[in-house]
């Protein structure tokens, strides 16, 4: 059964999974990063406190995060159809993945930025820096190691979600695992898919942690 067709299928599966994961992560950051920054800036005691904006973002993030991914996957099918043109396959999965991951990423970003020493922000304010400048040159730079750790976690989580999308024909390794393992009882193919998924997460994790350590100036030179 380990013919070249199966192997090709697995390789393509890996490609599809990586593509889904990376594209979704990028798009989710495009939404989640500004959202996370806005949460920190408008929070009580933030750079530009605004209870109204904070509360609104907070509620949105909480609602989206409390919807189980599988449900969300089905809920956004109409939207996916509008954006991608079809509701199955790995490209289509990017839409629900992005929507599900954005608020999660916003929270990760929020907690990373909160770690930045308030005193440093105050120092920048005392120098006459504008809020935009403080965000770009202080918050994001000082929090970069934590942001990278967050991104690693986010990518790993999105990879896991992408596999779940296999249930509704999402494409990629998850799809293969479900089709062969669940519907056809070809457990070995399912096992291999799962092992590859786990390996991918491990590799991502390793790269992320290495990178964040390497960029941290608080420990070594």
């Amino acid at each position: 059964m380990w013919d070249s067709a199966t192997i090709l299928m697995l390789v393509e599966g890996i490609g599809a999974t990586l593509q889904m994961t990376l594209l979704s992560t990028l798009m989710a950051y495009a939404l989640g990063l500004p959202m996370g920054i806005a949460l920190v800036v408008t929070a009580k005691g933030g750079l530009k406190p605004s209870p109204f904006i904070y509360k609104a973002l907070d509620i949105v993030a909480n609602i989206v995060r409390s919807v189980p991914f599988l449900i969300l996957l089905i809920l956004v099918i109409p939207l996916t159809k509008i954006i991608v043109g079809k509701s199955y396959g790995s490209t289509a999965t990017i839409v629900p993945l992005t929507i599900a991951a954005a608020p999660f990423i916003a929270r990760l970003v929020e907690s990373s930025l909160q770690e930045v020493d308030k005193g440093v922000l105050e120092a920048a304010q005392s120098m006459g820096a504008s809020t935009g400048m403080i965000v770009r040159k202080v918050l994001l730079v000082e929090a970069r190691t934590s942001l990278i750790v967050g991104a690693t976690i986010a990518t790993g989580t999105i990879l896991g979600y992408s596999a779940m999308a296999g249930v509704v024909g999402g494409g990629g390794l998850g799809d293969i695992a479900i089709r062969y393992g669940y519907y056809r009882y070809e457990t070995d193919i399912m096992l291999v898919s799962v092992i590859v998924l786990v390996a991918l997460v491990q590799i991502l994790q390793y790269i992320g942690m290495k990178l964040s350590k390497r960029l941290d100036r608080r420990i070594t030179g």
Binding site: G119, E122, E142, R144, D216, R217, R218
Partner: peptide, 17 residues
Amino acid sequence: RTQISMIFQHFNLLMQR
């Protein structure tokens, strides 16, 4: 504020620079 500088008890330097 650019004319009024400030130094602090805990220095408040940018740790990543």
